[in-house]
Simulated assay, not measured.
Amino acid sequence: MTTEELLEYDDVGDALREGRPLRPARVYRFLLAEGDLAFQHRQVSDPVPLGRQLLEAAGLDPRQGHSLFAILSSGDFEDVRLNEPFDLRERGAERFIAFQSDRDFKLTLNDDELRWGKPIISGTVLYGLAKRGDGEAIYLEVPGGEDRLIERNELIDLTGAGIERFITAPMTFEIIVNSRPRTVDARTVTFEQIVQLAFPGHHHPNVVFSMTYRHAASAPHAGELGAGGSVDVKKKGTVFNVTRTVQS
């Protein structure tokens, strides 16, 4: 391929999402954040840059004591050594975070105080640290509000005021179906599942169900749900109304 035939750029994230290798291009685009979650597009001309070249692409001076980490698709952090090559074509990482800090960050996990050497922690790390029972998940305590479920691929900023407090608890969701409280053990519920909660048992082919919902976690937060559909519910308070019609 000649220089004229090269793409202007290829995006590492696009390649990962499309399940394809990086294409020959003049530059390769990736995401980098500086000690927070404010990721910005950066680019390098080499698909196998040194760690220091990734920093320099963001205007950072490698001599100023930066640490650089790649965030893998699993949510794990991988140390990127500044004088060693990092193959953007093979490592499965689109996002990078640079830190310039020797500070420890405090958090609690089931009332055990932990110290973490980076201002960002991933859900994968928290799940690895936690001692969980069967069917339990990790939640961020929200004083005066609803505790927030932590997803494995989520990144949590520890730099805010106060100490982030995490707990393990059964992954149950309290919903309302036709004015009656019900409990489900997964965030995503299906049309068919809600129909069974509203009208248990086998249904005659002539019976047709219609369903509306409100206060859902997913967008839109309210609407109609049809056969084969699903919606994400909140920890508490998602409401479903199901009606049954017999066709002649």
Rank of each mutant, 00 (worst) to 15 (best):
D134V: 03
L158N: 09
N241A: 00
R187P: 04
T245Q: 15
R89L: 05
N178H: 03
G228V: 05
D112T: 12
K236W: 07
A58Q: 08
G65F: 05
L155F: 12
P181I: 01
S218E: 07
R17M: 14
E18A: 14
A186M: 03
A130L: 12
V195S: 06
T108V: 05
H215A: 03
L158M: 08
T245R: 12
N83M: 09
A216D: 01
R165D: 09
G92D: 04
I156F: 05
E94K: 10
D11M: 13
L37C: 08
A161M: 11
A227T: 03
E94W: 11
Y139S: 06
A217I: 01
L72R: 14
H203L: 00
Q40G: 09
V12Q: 05
A161Y: 03
D112Q: 15
A25W: 05
F39Q: 09
E5Y: 14
A93E: 12
F166L: 04
D112W: 10
A137P: 07
A15K: 11
H66A: 10
L158K: 07
H204Q: 09
M1W: 14
Q43Y: 05
D104R: 13
V80I: 08
Q247E: 11
A38F: 07
V125I: 15
G223R: 04
D61Y: 08
H203W: 02
Y9L: 07
R89Y: 04
H66D: 09
I167K: 13
L225N: 00
F105E: 08
N206R: 12
E90I: 00
H202F: 09
I120E: 02
N241R: 01
R244N: 05
D157P: 05
F86S: 05
D36I: 10
A15E: 06
S101A: 14
R20T: 10
N178F: 01
E164D: 11
V207M: 14
D102K: 14
R26K: 15
V184F: 02
D76E: 13
L16Y: 13
L114Y: 11
P220S: 04
T3R: 14
E84S: 12
E136D: 02
H221T: 13
Q64F: 05
P220Q: 04
R52Q: 14
R165Y: 07
E154C: 01
A161D: 14
T190V: 01
D157I: 08
N110E: 09
E56Q: 15
I71P: 04
R63V: 02
F173S: 01
F77G: 05
L68C: 13
D104G: 08
V177D: 00
L68S: 13
G75M: 01
P85R: 14
V184E: 03
T159C: 08
T108W: 04
D46C: 10
Y213P: 02
L22H: 12
S74R: 13
G92N: 12
A198L: 04
G135A: 04
P143N: 07
E141T: 11
V231S: 00
R42W: 06
S122P: 07
